[in-house]
Design a protein around this nucleic acid. Structure first.
Lengths: 142, 142
DNA sequence: CAAAATGATACTAATTTAGTATCATTATAA
DNA sequence: TTATAATGATACTAAATTAGTATCATTTTG
């Protein structure tokens, strides 16, 4: 059971690297060299992050990607949602077919409660959690 | 993001049906008729539950499957584990490659905490949660 | 104009999930 | 003793998701 798929994983790593980088604007080639993540896959992931407004991009020589927000404004929950879709855990089960004879299905309630807990915890986690606190970062704004 | 895959889902439904059934021993054909789950898939699932000791099976005419335990001894967490493997949520990420410069990765700790919560909640949920409490069931023992 | 970057997009490969098929064995009862 | 209705074992196929590649167009810098 996976809470986090590989693209979310790579996105987190890439964003962390950019946050820690001296240079504000970081090209994919540099991320590729440092993180050992395949370049085309990285490109795809960063393009998505850009479209979703998590990164700003600069084309042409000397271009690359920059954080759109400060690390404490970048939430793991958002990244998961971008790459893995809605955070609802109980998509498949207990929609309609089960518990036909019970008005309020207890299981559904409990699954919902678990889900709410997971989501609220995830919403609390930002890039900063990965970077430690005693540093300054290249990113600004937010 | 799915907490529960289809085989777990079907397993829960099948076990519920058996628990609620007048007859103690229920053949796949009857489950198939009532639950509208494809018969070969049901067979596969029930055979797994049997091998894992959650059901007892009886071959031959008049045979079928019987709960091996009372419904309050059948845990959702166990079913998830049987069909979806270990309940660890953080298989993929934060094993070794991330946080190379931080001794104790805060994110890992928080993911672990979330995971423990989910597991402990799931461990609390039994078949009874699906059946209501004010009834008697066909199953015994445990 | 060359080089180094992203944008857009379409494609392939691998893995996991979902579901089928079939033959062998067992038990019951006419 | 034979037909029938069940499971056991196992191998297979199909669909969906996840992971990753490839390519051509555009932009920017020098």
């Amino acid at each position: 059971m996976k809470l986090i798929t590989r693209d979310t994983d790579y996105a987190v790593r890439a964003l962390c690297f950019i946050a820690k980088c001296e240079r504000e604007i970081v090209p994919v080639s540099e991320l590729n060299r440092n993180l050992r993540i395949p370049k085309p896959f990285l490109r795809k992931i960063l393009q998505i992050l850009n479209k979703k407004g998590m990164l700003k991009s600069y084309k042409g020589k000397g271009g690359g990607f920059m954080l759109a927000f400060a690390p404490n404004k970048i939430f793991l929950a958002d990244l998961i949602e971008i790459f893995q879709g809605s955070l609802k855990l109980n998509k498949c089960i207990f929609k309609k077919r089960i518990c036909p004879d019970i008005k309020t299905c207890k299981l559904k309630k409990r699954i919902d409660a678990i889900q709410k807990h997971v989501i609220s915890e995830l919403k609390d986690i930002t890039l900063v959690s990965l970077l430690g606190e005693t540093r300054t970062y290249g990113a600004k704004g937010g």
